[in-house]
Design a protein around this nucleic acid. Structure first.
Length: 283
DNA sequence: GGCCAGGTCCAAT
DNA sequence: ATTGGACATGGC
C-alpha cells in the first residue's frame, strides 16, 4: 500500500460517510471506494493516508486534499451557530466526484433515502457497468452515459419514475453538457444543469458542490430546510430561494461547506432523538 | 401495513 | 408568484 501525508485537517470517515457520496463500504478498518471507473482501498492513520488501487493524484483530487480548509475554518469558525457541527465533524472535505456519476446519483436521490439510493446505484453498476477488479475482488464501474440509455431496464432495477430522467440526462451528457458546466461560472453552470429534465435547484447545487468544487452552492433539501428554518427563521415556513439567499449572504463562498456540516449534524441529532434505544420485547 | 422519503414537474389558482 | 397532486418503489 502506498501512502501520503495530509497536512491539514482531514477526516476520512466524516468525508465519506457524511452523505455526499454513495459508493463506499467499510473494509478492514478502512474503506473500499468506487468512483467512476476507479476502485480503490483507503485507510487513514493520523496524518497518513494509505491507499491501493489508484494514484496519489487521484486521491488528492477526489478528496480535495489541496483545498485550503484553514480558510474555510477561518470563514465559518466565527459563526456560533456552526460551532458544534464544525467541532464534531472537523476534517470533513467536499469531494470532487465524477460529474456524470454525481448527476446520476442525485437524480436517483430524489424522494428517496440513503439506503435505497446506495442500493439503486450499486444495482445500476452491476447491471450496466464495465467489470473492475482489485486484488481479486470483482466489481463494476459506474456506467458511462452511453451505457445507461435503456429506460425499461432501469425501471426493472427499481428506479421508478427516475428512470426517464436518467435516460434524458445520459443523452445530454453524451452531447457534452457536463463539459460545458465545467467551464461556466456558477450561475451559468447551474442554469445549464437545470436544462436536464429532473434537475432543478437542489440537484443542480448538489452536482456543483460534490463534483465541481463550487463551494458556494447550497443545496436545500428537506433536512437543510428544517435546520435552517429552525436556526434562522423562527421555524417559519420559508421559500428555498430565501434560504439560499440567506446562506449566500452569511457564508458566501463557503456556504456549501456550511451546508454539509449542517446536513450531517442535523441528521445525526435526528437519528438519536427519533430512535430510542431498542427495549427488550415482552416475553 | 401505512406513511413518507437528499424533488421535480405541471396544472390550477 | 404560490400551491397541491402525481410520480414508482421501498425503508422503517
Amino acid at each position: 500500500m502506498a501512502f501520503l501525508f495530509v497536512n491539514a485537517p482531514f477526516h476520512l470517515r466524516h468525508t465519506l460517510e457524511c452523505g455526499q457520496f454513495f459508493r463506499w463500504s467499510r473494509r478492514n478498518g478502512g474503506y473500499l471506494v468506487h468512483s467512476g471507473d476507479q476502485l480503490f482501498e483507503i485507510q487513514q492513520e493520523g496524518d497518513r493516508l494509505h491507499y491501493a488501487g489508484t494514484t496519489q493524484a487521484f486521491v488528492r483530487r477526489f478528496f480535495s486534499l489541496d483545498h485550503d480548509v484553514e480558510e474555510v475554518e477561518r470563514a465559518l469558525g466565527g459563526d456560533p451557530r456552526l460551532a458544534e457541527a464544525l467541532e464534531r465533524y472537523r476534517g470533513l472535505r467536499l469531494l470532487r466526484q465524477d460529474p456524470w456519476e454525481c448527476t446520476a446519483a442525485f437524480l436517483i436521490s430524489m424522494v428517496s433515502n440513503i439506503p435505497r439510493i446506495t442500493r439503486n446505484i450499486a444495482d445500476i453498476a452491476r447491471a450496466c457497468g464495465r467489470p473492475l477488479a482489485l486484488e481479486g475482488f470483482r466489481s463494476h464501474a459506474f456506467p458511462r452515459p452511453a451505457e445507461m440509455v435503456d429506460e425499461a431496464h432501469l425501471r426493472r432495477l427499481g428506479l421508478g419514475f427516475r428512470a426517464k430522467y436518467l435516460v434524458a440526462a445520459a443523452r445530454l451528457a453524451e452531447g457534452g453538457l457536463l463539459g460545458k458546466v465545467q467551464q461556466s461560472p456558477y450561475m451559468k453552470a447551474k442554469e445549464t444543469l437545470m436544462t436536464i429534465p429532473g434537475v432543478a435547484e437542489k440537484v443542480a447545487d448538489c452536482i456543483l458542490l460534490f463534483a465541481y468544487g463550487r463551494r458556494n452552492a447550497f443545496p436545500v433539501d428537506t433536512w437543510i430546510r428544517k435546520v435552517m428554518t429552525k436556526m434562522f427563521f423562527r421555524g417559519r415556513r420559508t421559500p428555498d430561494r430565501a434560504i439560499r439567499a440567506f446562506a449566500a449572504k452569511r457564508w458566501g463562498d463557503h456556504a456549501g461547506h456550511a451546508q454539509q456540516y449542517l446536513y450531517v449534524w442535523s441528521r445525526e441529532a435526528k437519528t438519536f432523538s427519533d430512535r430510542p434505544a431498542p427495549t427488550a420485547s415482552p416475553a
